[in-house]
Design a protein around this nucleic acid. Sequence first.
DNA 1: AATTGTGAAATTGTTCACAGCA
DNA 2: TGCTGTGAACAATTTCACAATT
Lengths: 216, 216
Amino acid sequence: MRERKISESTIHRLSHYYRALNTLEKEHFETISSKELAKREKLTPAQVRKDLSFFGSFGTRGLGYPVKELKGRIAKILGIDRTWNVALIGVGNIGSALVSYKEFQRQGFNIKVLFDSDQRKIGSNHKGITVLDTDHLEEELQKNKIELVVLAVPASAAQNIVDHVVHCGIKAILNFAPIKLKVPDDVEIRTENMAMELEYLSFTLVNNKKGERKKT
Amino acid sequence: MRERKISESTIHRLSHYYRALNTLEKEHFETISSKELAKREKLTPAQVRKDLSFFGSFGTRGLGYPVKELKGRIAKILGIDRTWNVALIGVGNIGSALVSYKEFQRQGFNIKVLFDSDQRKIGSNHKGITVLDTDHLEEELQKNKIELVVLAVPASAAQNIVDHVVHCGIKAILNFAPIKLKVPDDVEIRTENMAMELEYLSFTLVNNKKGERKKT
DNA sequence: AATTGTGAAATTGTTCACAGCA
DNA sequence: TGCTGTGAACAATTTCACAATT
């Protein structure tokens, strides 16, 4: 009933809990304590309890959380207790890899259509999905009731395509182009920037000593 | 001279500044104010100044920051003012896509060796790099003076491989397997989980209204 | 006895506001 | 005057600590 502002990190941790619960379920655990769940995810028990408490009281004092039920609750919170119609735009290196990425399918992200602007690719088949022409993007997104778009086109083409995507009402975009795209406030766009993660690693390498402390 | 604890988000913002400066340089800007840089990255000017101030005084009061110099300074901070020897393990869907990912090369992340355990792939060639047998992993990592490892193997194989990687002294790993890997404290591992980003998007879709506020 | 759920405290991160400098 | 650099104020997030519950 209570409504609160949920932070991005809380959501990401829910994703982690979900994966852990999935594993625990396979290992036939019936219940799990915040302590054990925290240990598996390298967090503190208080963090786990606080995160979950934003959404309700799912546990039993003295006992812990019921694995199967909690997994279901988190799935519902994350919106993965259903399937989503996804379009993947750009069937280049990254795009083709993503078509085969099992994890998407497994979480209910159903890639229904592929798009490319390269005439040699249009009409070809990837994992049983035909590649359509980006010229018919808006029309096909609507026809296929697409709710979520994954963008894997070159940086130079990305803004133009994203404008079309936004224009036909898509509210969620996962972008692999290494560029900051402009979208209206009511559209959520996440940019997956792999080079940035390498830069973070390179930073830790040159600034050695992970547990670095301030000198003041 | 001063030494402080730098947050992960600060580092990520430096990566963004670096990209923006790169663009600005191409646009022939000589200087840039924190205000303008903030606008381009959708941040506040104070944030930009504070981030940079952790590392020194790079600007000129009344004028702003010299684009070219600041870019160089950030490159140095991030450790991308040099090249890194990278090994990519796992030449499946994602692995092959990463070999061709221009952005890595561009930032000085030089993929020197590829590994796979599939006999059909071993000896084959991707973008001029020969695929080696994971059986010789440790030996080859050392021989090629690898400093950074990108892991793109199935989740089931990941922990075993990471143990070998850690064993021969690698301190930085970028992991694409959707699993939490155990590494010693002095090894930095970043896990790129693409399904997690989709889950975040799906969360925003079911919990509509981006600017959500608490009700108390 | 064990473990949740949660206010309060501690910590971390961001923004303000202004002195200091070109 | 314009804009940086930064301590202080503020905001958000995490951790603590303990009452409540099974």
